[in-house]
């Protein structure tokens, strides 16, 4: 694999994301924050409010909640990824 990758000009390791793609990802995130100007405190408040509201209806996994600002061609988006524990939705 090393030989073929060298020939094709690829990195020897494909298991980890390349440092260039990490750079790009980190930049996109930080630029969205620069544009939207959300402070870490506000972000934390959003996070706890989302948890509070969703917890009324669902059994959500607070530790796994991910909130990201992302950039798409249609503008900047706030994306929340909320893992729901098994059996959720049958609490009524």
């Amino acid at each position: 694999m090393g030989f073929f990758d060298t020939l094709m000009g690829r990195s020897a390791s494909r298991r980890n994301p390349s440092s260039a793609s990490m750079a790009k990802q980190r930049l996109v995130e930080v630029l969205v924050q620069d544009h939207v100007k959300i402070t870490p405190e506000v972000m934390e408040a959003i996070r706890s409010d989302i948890l509070k509201i969703l917890s009324r209806h669902l059994d959500v996994d607070a530790d796994q909640l991910q909130i990201n600002l992302t950039r798409t061609d249609r503008g900047d988006n706030l994306v929340a990824n909320v893992p729901v524990r098994r059996g959720a939705g049958s609490r009524h």
């Binding site: 000009g9 690829r10 990195s11 390349s18 440092s19 260039a20 793609s21 790009k24 930049l27 630029l31």
Partner: peptide, 16 residues
């Protein structure tokens, strides 16, 4: 470095 995946490409930078 770009080919090795260790530097952002021109396309990456212009896209950002």
């Amino acid at each position: 470095l770009v080919r090795r995946g260790d530097m952002m490409s021109v396309d990456d930078v212009t896209e950002i």
